[in-house]
Design a protein around this nucleic acid. Structure first.
Length: 308
RNA sequence: GGCUUGGUAGCUCAGUUGGUAGAGCAGUGGACUGAAAAUCCUCGUGUCGGCAGUUCAAUUCUGCCCCGAGCCA
């Protein structure tokens, strides 16, 4: 008994409702794969299921972090394996649901390369390098120490340039030498991978709009205010995510409600687009263009019954 | 009704001393190994409001008309 079902899809595609239905129908245990729902108190803006739903259908990996905690794909992968194991020990099948595609990718790839955690002094060192020079300098530096790695990233991609240097300084080795890009999909589990890629982008965009208006009606701005008040002076990683970021800009008087709303909508659409790009290119998934519940139920039923 | 001003890409606007035009945003496709709802890359033909006139040539000049904004009546 080592089956795992994954249900992936872009934001606002209706994954959560389907997951609950599947969990109910097949006695599955839901494990959330959502980088914002990890956080306590980030409820409305992350479209986290309501308390009552969570009480009835427990989701693992939701509300596992305090709002000020830092997290990473590596920690996620560790936690995920523990949860999968726990579910299997209960003779049940876990249902991974979410839209954080890099997290899914990491699961499908069987984890990450074995790299050291970057210490603060190294972060500061690179930060100083950057502020004393410019990004071009960092990129040239990276090219000198590891041309192979540098070639893979764009000279404007600050995030990855910095990360490359972090890996180099932390591990004292070339990133291209210690990152194993060919981690074979480790067949720890028997997977059923389901992707939902909406066939109509227009409909998805409409759903995004409806959902945002619900969030605003439910008190998104209030939620942001409360978080700001309660954790004043602390850095909240999820505060820079879609919805929260723009709500803060509005609350700081940088824009009016109308602009905030259209900025959130645009950012959400762009997120959905990126998620769909992942979904198109992740192998070994069965793709549904619509949430045709019947087809999916039949598929899952077959998988659950199958003797492996 | 008169005067002023504007009508250019889905939106906001730039521009063409007359040779049919380009930015930002939006949208699209893509990349993705410890912040990933992050970070980054690619892609720009549209009767330049309509009709007529001048001209070798008009989106650009002229006239009339239509639509919007402001002011005066």
């Amino acid at each position: 008994m080592n089956k795992v079902i994954s249900l992936m899809g872009p934001t606002a595609s209706g994954k959560t409702d389907l997951a609950i239905l599947l969990a109910q129908e097949f006695n599955l245990e839901i494990i959330s794969v959502d980088s914002v729902m990890f956080y306590k108190e980030f409820n409305i803006g992350s479209a986290k299921p309501k308390e009552e739903i969570l009480a009835k259908f427990p989701h693992r990996m939701i509300n596992i972090l305090e709002p000020f905690e830092e997290y990473s794909v590596a920690k996620f992968y560790e936690n995920l394996l523990l949860h999968i194991k726990e579910v299997h020990n209960k003779k049940k099948i876990p249902l991974l649901v979410g839209g954080s595609m890099m997290y899914f990718k990491t699961y499908f790839s069987g984890g990450l390369s074995d790299l050291k955690i970057v210490q603060n002094d190294i972060k500061k060192l690179i930060d100083d390098m950057l502020s004393k020079n410019n990004l071009e300098f960092l990129y040239d530096y990276l090219k000198k120490i590891d041309i192979e790695f540098a070639k893979k990233i764009h000279f404007n991609d600050k995030y990855r340039i910095v990360r490359g240097l972090e890996i180099y300084f932390s591990n004292k080795k070339k990133p291209s030498e210690i990152i194993n890009y060919n981690l074979k999909e480790k067949k720890f589990f028997k997977n059923l991978n389901l992707s939902v890629i909406p066939n109509s982008r227009d409909n998805l965009h409409k759903n995004i709009e409806i959902r945002l208006d619900n969030m605003l009606a439910e008190g998104l701005l209030d939620e942001v205010n409360k978080l700001n008040f309660k954790y004043v002076g602390k850095k909240l990683p999820a505060m820079s995510t879609i919805g929260y970021k723009q709500a803060n800009e509005f609350l700081q008087g940088k824009m009016n409600v109308k602009t905030m709303r259209s900025n959130i909508l645009a950012a959400t659409r762009q997120l959905a687009k990126r998620q769909i790009t992942w979904l198109r290119h992740i192998d070994a998934t069965i793709v549904y263009e619509l949430l045709v519940y019947d087809n999916i139920l039949i598929r899952v039923d077959k998988f659950v019954r199958k003797k492996i």
